[in-house]
Computed example of a mutant assay.
Amino acid sequence: MPVLDILILLAAAFGAGVLNTIAGGGTFLTFPALVLTGVPPVAANATSAVAVFPGYLGGALGFRAELAAFDRARLIRLTLITLAGGIVGSGLLLVSSNEAFSLVVPFLLLAATLAFLFGDRIRIWAAARARSLTPEGAAGLFAVSIYGGYFNGGLGIVLLALFALWGMVDLHRMNGLKTGLSFALSAISVAVFAVAGLVVWPQAVMMMVAATLGGYLGAPIARALPREAVRWLIALIGFGMSAIFFARLMG
């Protein structure tokens, strides 16, 4: 592997670790970097999921108190629904050709960027339309999990909006549930991709190390930077990557 490619992948993974610690959006860096260095789009998506996986584990451990506050049977039911959707979404990626996946990637990146940028408004909008007795819908979580298994970008924002529609109001509990379910979904997706042989392991391993380091160092950076500035920086990265992939599609 050329030294320049290694440097690009390490820098992208490190930046993704920092971004995910601060506000999310690491996929906007890892996936395009893999494609740029010659990894086919489908394999790049699978390898990107593996690269950022340690961050989900760390997040789940960080929210273990919030997760423990949920009824165990309820948490198990939601996790099983998430795992089922993740398997379906990952399976869809397995049968997608690189050409077909390349067609939808720009739209997925753009949708994920918009979801990230307007995530708080989406959550508030959803909460305003919720009813105190709104039941948890298996269909909604299953559909969101399919998306997450297929393409992970913006998953957390969509999950928070879904929880608001369920009538949840405690943001800490919502974030805990979001992180726990995201970890479960990412774990099953990584397992499916690994068994199917989609993961490019040399790139994945080096990016996992860099992303973990970036996640660790992202905490003090998160405290030092204004939240609004970070949000717009990530949005600009997302829009920029969307534009690049739209240009590739049109070219």
Rank of each mutant, 00 (worst) to 15 (best):
Y147G: 02
A73L: 12
V144R: 00
A139R: 14
F28I: 05
T179A: 15
L103A: 09
L103C: 02
F151C: 02
R72T: 12
L160T: 04
I8Y: 07
Y150S: 00
G148S: 13
L159H: 08
A49T: 15
W125H: 11
G62N: 14
G251T: 01
V230I: 14
R121V: 03
L155T: 13
S182A: 15
S186M: 14
G240M: 12
N175D: 06
G119K: 00
L83A: 11
A184Q: 06
S186V: 11
S182E: 10
F28V: 11
A16M: 06
F193C: 06
A243H: 09
L141H: 00
V199W: 04
G86A: 07
A13D: 03
A49C: 09
L236I: 14
M241Q: 13
P226V: 11
L133N: 14
G176Q: 14
R123P: 00
V50Q: 03
I146F: 06
G176M: 11
L10W: 02
P135S: 03
L80V: 13
A112Q: 08
A247V: 07
W201I: 10
G180I: 04
I146C: 07
A60E: 01
L177I: 03
R64V: 05
F70V: 08
F53C: 08
A13P: 03
N175I: 05
E99M: 03
P202D: 12
A138F: 04
W166V: 06
R231E: 09
F245L: 11
G24K: 13
A128N: 15
N20Q: 09
G180F: 10
A210D: 06
L249T: 09
N20P: 13
L217H: 08
G15R: 13
A115I: 11
R121A: 13
A12V: 10
A65R: 15
L217S: 03
S97L: 11
M250T: 13
A33C: 00
A16V: 07
L61P: 05
D71L: 10
R72E: 11
A51P: 14
A187V: 02
A243G: 09
R173Y: 06
F101M: 02
L177F: 05
G17C: 08
F245W: 05
L36E: 04
G238F: 02
D71T: 05
G240C: 06
T113S: 09
F107K: 02
L92S: 04
T30R: 03
A60I: 04
P2N: 12
S189M: 10
E228I: 00
A224T: 01
L78C: 03
I234W: 01
F101N: 00
L7D: 06
L181V: 05
A11Q: 12
A43M: 11
L155V: 15
P41A: 04
G25C: 01
A65G: 03
F246M: 04
D170K: 09
L10K: 07
A44N: 02
